[in-house]
Structures are given as C-alpha cells and as structure tokens.
Amino acid sequence: MEQILANGLYLGAQYALIALGLTLIFSLMNVLNFAHGQMYVFGGFVTYTVVAQFGLPFIVGLIASALVLAVMGALIERFLFRPVIRKSKRDESTMLLAAGIAFFLDAVILLLFGEKQRGVPKVVNGVFNWDMRLIMPYDRILIAVLAIALIVGFILFMQYSRTGRAMRALAQDRMAAQLMGVDVDRYSMIGFALGAMLAGLVGGLLVTITGINLGMGGPTSVKAFLMIMIGGAGVISGAIAGGFILGMMESIGLTVLAAYGDVTYLVIFVTLMIFLAIRPQGLMGKPWG
C-alpha cells in the first residue's frame, strides 16, 4: 500500500506540473494547446543536449529548457496565436493552429535531435528501501520534490505577484480586465510563455528518469487533457487535483489490476466518461465556463 501511494504521489506531481501549463494557456486565451506535449519533449531534448552533449550540470540544462521554451512560447503566441485570435472568432481556428504546431514541432525535433530515445545520467544515485515495503530511488524523490516545489512556486507567483494577479484577472474576465487597464496582449504572451516554460521544465526534469523520445509528445498531451478535464479546464487548482488524481488512479490500477492485463487506462477512461456525464465541467470548473 505504501508503495502504491508513493508511486501515485510521484506520478501525480509530474502530471500536475504538465497540466498546469496547459490549463494556464487555456484559461488566459481559451486555446486548447495540442502542442503542449511536443513542448514537453522539446524541453527534455534541450536538457539532454546541454547535459549529455555539452557536459554541463543538470541545473544548467533545466534552466536552458525553461528559457528556450519560454522564448518559444512567447514567439508562438506573438506571431501565430495572436493574429489568428484577432482575425477569427471561431475556436476551431486556434485548435487547428495548435495541431499544426504540434506536427511542426514533431518534425523539428526529429531533424534537430534524431529518432532515438535519449536520456541523461542519474542526478542522484541510490535507492530508498524501507524494509521492501516502500522502494523509491532517490532521484525520483528529488524530482517529485522539485516538481512540488515548482507547483508551490507557481501558485505563489500567480497569487501574489503583479503579473500573476493580472493573469488571473484576464482569466476571470478578459473584457473587464482590459477595461481595468490590464495589457491583454502582454499578459497573454507572458502566460503562454509561462505555460510553455512549465512544459519544458517537466521535460527537463523527467529526462533524467524516463528519458525522452520524439513520440512522447502526443500521449503526453492526451494525459494533460485528461487531467484538466478531471479537475476543470482553466482552473489551476483543478489541474493540480486532476494531476494527482490521475497519478493515483494509474498507480492503484497498475497494481490492483495487474493480473487482468493492461486494463488500467480502460478503467480510467470509462470512469472519466461516467464522471463527465455527471459533471461535465470537472471537479472545480464552473458550468458556465
């Protein structure tokens, strides 16, 4: 039981961090960023390049991933989403654009980093073993702690910084925020950059544990959408809750249902369908959007 809980918490922390970026972008711009998973993969490859190819410390790789993805996110918002949002009132325009960016990033990743699975050496060696009841490698503990620290830092930033307050105002009511003097374009760009940066940071964190390959983008986006549907799209606390719930469901399912084959995600999807039929806005979302 201890092992199941620990696995669930570890998975939940990384999932929540992935979902945060996606939900931030959705709340600010009403954009379903299908390229979020590809941004995560790009971040992983940046860390891999800095650490494994250039031989620099892991923390440098992590910072490089954050910076590169933040710049990428800002550019994507400024030159792609902003003009499309300005010219088209239809939601599907931004959805198609996001899907196009996902395919484009897949191609760029293949060209820049190749087709192989990549990984970097363990950041910390050794395994925590509590009488065979709970086994957890130290590097996973470190990554989980870092992920939780980043989530806390993000919440504090959104709660108490001027930029965070402006973004929250934007998410609550775009028109009212504009009338109150919030620079919508500026904070949309900062929000998108922040969302992309979070994706890059998770990619950088997990490249030490799971490695990275160009095929991980799509499935990561699907899981991120699952999490924000559970928690409520556009709600930060909902994304965190969704991440931890999905992580815990996965951990429990993989252990309890192991004897029945790979049915964990089947059960999760069925549960989610029933849940959404009862509460389509998710746990913490509002029915009116």
Binding site: Q3, N7, L11, I209
Partner: peptide
C-alpha cells in the same frame, strides 16, 4: 507511452 515503469514492474 508509459513514463514510469515502477508500478508496472512491481508485481
């Protein structure tokens, strides 16, 4: 697309 094999391998 599993990213954490610990729970999978445990049993």
């Amino acid at each position: 697309d599993t990213t954490d094999f610990t729970p999978v391998l445990l049993p």
